[in-house]
Nucleic acid binder design. Structure first.
Lengths: 330, 330
DNA sequence: CTGTTAGCGCCTTCAG
DNA sequence: CTGAAGGCGCTAACAG
């Protein structure tokens, strides 16, 4: 900028004004400045220097969980991201996806990223990234938990929703089962009965499991007898394998409460015709296959998280879900 | 940092070293510094100041086209983004999604974003964002074009692929038709015969259309008679409506060359049983519905774009496609 | 309308 | 092992 000023025969301030408050500069000076800039290949004020000066980056950080890969493979996470992006675009904020998945370095990344605030996609209770984000004194909004002092949580009441879904799918069932997301960051696949929700590290999974247990208990079902298939990923092949394993252990299964539409559909495919099933998210495939499911708008929640992270009041979403009853539970 | 230094009773340099080259500082000093930092709530060097000093941000910018909304609604764009994200995560780069869609301001955004290089998702020939990105003297890699001096293009040879796909689907057809993506940024929906590829503003769409025309000409079909349905979005409902319109205009249609699997599937649903169809991308739905399709890995191309943008040699992808023959063309 | 001064927070260089 | 000086590029505040 100094160079441009010299070449244009004006002071650096005139150059600065030319870019930031053009109307404050005479047409003549402005032309001189822009000419000089073009000649020197100067494209405008340096963003880093500007951020330093302003004390703000006008960029929102998003932390998407332990592996970017999972995030982009999960259509729900993508919808969430779209909601965040929408708000950023509206308000002229950049959206920085913070790389995670490298373990130890995640913390450093979160600390060192040039962002004004963070939106964190739901993670485990013990994720160090959360504490790191908050410790940098940036505003932190977490989707669906874990809840922590110094951070805001936005999301639906997963336990209440799961209880309603469980009541629907387990009604009249004699051999209910559950298809669950991973219980901790090791993301292991296994089948076991009566998993204690309290032992689950992901708050979303924990709450949904607790809700399904609530529903079972309400119906007089012995939770310790309910087989639970834990799927490493939200993937069709994976889920079908787990469902087969579940049927091995308990061939009489007649109702499956799943934590995602894809899991639910996989269950249905492995035991067509004899199963009551609920899914989660009311995605396209749920509508295509007449699946009872818990509807929620991840996109809206993403927008709400971004709005809150940017310092504005955002709507509460605890009750922004509803059970969509379809053929799969009738 | 100055405050921390004072509180710790050391010089600012010692604080800086504590964070950047810890081994160069005595354990004692380090402890003093970290204590003071904790007390003062200092989380580490300021990212903007650091970028300013280093002259680099270690962040890669991605420009996703005229509306973020389209980008996230398009599963192929998401896959591409996943590939970019993967490389960023590997190399410790942040990934900044540059908000676009606001028209005039897009240019400013691209100029002012704190990134070292750009990856641009394919856009129109006249997109001012491209020129803006290049003018900032940052490295610019464009996916699939448009090609411009000063930028690198990575992508498959859409024309050759479309020619192969067209040869397959139009073989023996008497009334071929095309389902196309938008021809310009107005994204209008319409049906017209014999659209001249040269008039299309999106290079990808242009090349695919040209390839389909090549195939038609090869088979002795009069291109000016081939009805083309242009779909505003890559969406099932939209595509079915356009397909119906196409059937109104030309009830005898017996072969449809589509530019996306979703479009192809919509065509099939509107005229089941009597249609030869090809799609594009070999997505999950193509496999589910036995759709002949052009397979390519957007994810790998995303990774290649990111690698190139970061200054490393990236594989050429011109021939990274293949025609997957399935039931829909037999 | 334009220029001067000062300093945002950091780190490279060079001396202790 | 630690510190002092200087400057990265920019703009707020205040003259002129």
């Amino acid at each position: 900028m100094t160079d441009v000023a010299r070449a244009a025969g004006v002071s650096p301030m005139t150059v600065s004004y030319t870019y930031n408050q053009p109307q404050r500069v005479s047409a003549e000076s402005r032309a001189k400045v822009l000419d000089a800039a073009r000649d020197l290949g100067y494209a405008g004020p340096d963003p880093s220097a500007r951020s330093l000066r302003y004390g703000a980056t006008r960029t929102l950080g998003v932390v998407l969980g332990e592996h970017l890969t999972y995030a982009f493979d999960d259509p729900q996470a993508v919808l969430f991201l779209a909601g965040v992006a929408e708000v950023c675009a509206d308000r002229g904020y950049g959206l920085l996806i913070v790389p995670t998945g490298t373990g130890e370095e995640d913390r450093d990344w979160v600390v060192a990223a040039a962002v004004d605030a963070y939106v964190v996609w739901t993670t485990t209770d013990d994720d160090p990234v959360l504490a790191a984000a908050r410790d940098t004194r940036r505003r932190v909004v977490v989707h669906s938990g874990p809840a922590r002092p110094g951070t805001t949580v936005i999301g639906i009441d997963n336990r209440a929703a799961a209880r309603a879904a469980g009541a629907e799918v387990f009604a009249g069932a004699r051999h209910p089962a559950v298809l669950s997301f991973p219980v901790d960051r090791r993301r292991e696949t296994f089948v076991r009965s009566g998993i204690d929700p309290a032992s689950v590290a992901y708050p979303v999974t924990r709450d949904r499991l607790a809700g399904y247990r609530d529903a079972a208990v309400d119906l007089g079902i012995d939770w310790s007898e309910v087989p639970i298939g834990v799927c490493r990923t939200n993937d069709d092949g994976e889920a079908r394998a787990v469902m087969r394993e579940l049927l091995d252990v308990a061939p009489g299964i007649d109702a499956v409460a799943a934590m995602g539409d894809r899991l639910a559909l996989a269950a249905l495919r492995e035991a067509p015709g004899r199963l009551r099933v609920v899914g989660w998210d009311d995605s396209e495939i749920a509508r295509d296959h007449d699946l009872t499911t818990v509807a929620q708008s991840l996109r809206e929640q993403g927008a709400a998280c971004a709005t809150a992270a940017l310092g504005d009041p955002a709507p509460d979403h605890r009750d922004s879900w509803r059970l969509v009853r379809r053929a799969s539970t009738s």
